[in-house]
Amino acid sequence: MNSISRKLKRVMPNQHTEMVYKSQLSTFNVAFLGVGSLAMIGFGTKFLLDTQESEINWFIIFPLIIIFIGGLILSETLTLCSVAITREFLILNYPFLRKTTHIPWKSITDAGMTFVTTKSSGSDYAFRKGKEIRLFADGKHYRFTTFTIQDSERLLLELKKRLDSSLKKKMKDEYQKSKSLFWKSENDYRRWMKKIVLPISLIILILLWAFNK
């Protein structure tokens, strides 16, 4: 009996292990995502009812896309997790799913980090920037973003202390590459708007004004 209990102690996480870092979800960001997703679903549903009326037509694609995006954001919101770190485990707590996952540091065999933003279109000038962390351990993938985690810089610092040097380099290279690609596409978009779209729009307005004069 004693040998069995000793084995269980080695396998199961020790609830009294010293906590090195413990994050909390940002209430504002979580609420923003939740309310935004519900608003999109509500707007899409109303749009669907207003455009279809008595028969289905091709306009159905637009409200369905809005509802789909809203549902996708809502599902992502429900899978948000806070992160805690002990010397033995990386702990992911999913409050909406009522689930906690303990990942032994030694079991992490692969990792990645990409640049992500809340930007929804090319016209967005005020948007949040963050990082998406991906981990692979014991045949399972885990993912979380820094958008909704308070004190995320400390979290990244604690992660770097415990991950293998090759994984840290891979994460850094992947992040820098994704960040460069984002800003390149952003600059290309603004250049395209400034040199092509805005001049054409201005010419159209001038022509309309001349014809109506």
Rank of each mutant, 00 (worst) to 15 (best):
A111F: 02
T77M: 07
T145K: 14
F59K: 12
S37L: 03
D173V: 04
D50A: 14
K172R: 11
Y175N: 03
Q24G: 06
K170Q: 10
L74N: 06
R190H: 12
I133G: 14
G34M: 02
D173C: 04
A39F: 07
L208T: 10
K179D: 04
Y94M: 13
A126F: 02
L167T: 05
M19F: 02
F47C: 15
K9M: 07
G130V: 07
L74G: 12
A210F: 01
S152D: 13
I91M: 09
I67K: 04
T109Q: 05
P199L: 01
L202Y: 00
V116G: 14
G34I: 02
L205N: 08
L167Q: 04
E158C: 11
T51I: 08
M19A: 10
K7L: 09
S107V: 01
E18I: 08
W209C: 14
L198E: 11
E18V: 10
T51D: 09
S185R: 04
I133T: 09
H102T: 07
A39I: 12
Q52E: 07
L97C: 08
F32R: 11
S178C: 06
S3P: 10
G42A: 08
Q176M: 05
K169H: 03
Q15H: 06
I133M: 08
I73H: 04
F144C: 13
I66P: 12
T118W: 01
F28K: 12
E186L: 08
S54A: 09
T101F: 00
K22T: 07
F89Y: 12
F144M: 12
H141S: 15
L33R: 05
N29L: 09
T117H: 05
H16E: 07
L90D: 06
D164M: 01
M193Q: 08
L135N: 10
R98M: 08
S54M: 05
F115P: 15
T100P: 09
A137S: 14
T51Q: 11
V197W: 00
G112D: 07
I61L: 11
V197F: 02
L8I: 06
I41G: 14
R128L: 12
K170G: 15
A210T: 06
A39H: 05
P13R: 01
L207H: 02
R98E: 05
Y94F: 12
I206W: 00
I200N: 05
L202F: 00
L207F: 02
R10H: 03
G139V: 03
L135W: 01
E76D: 09
Q150H: 14
M40I: 09
K195G: 15
R162D: 02
R98Y: 02
L80R: 03
N212V: 11
N212K: 13
A84F: 00
Y142N: 14
Q24R: 04
S165R: 01
Q15S: 13
L64F: 03
T109K: 06
S123K: 05
R162T: 04
L92R: 08
G139K: 02
D110M: 02
T77A: 12
R190W: 02
I66S: 12
R10A: 11
L198D: 12
E153K: 15
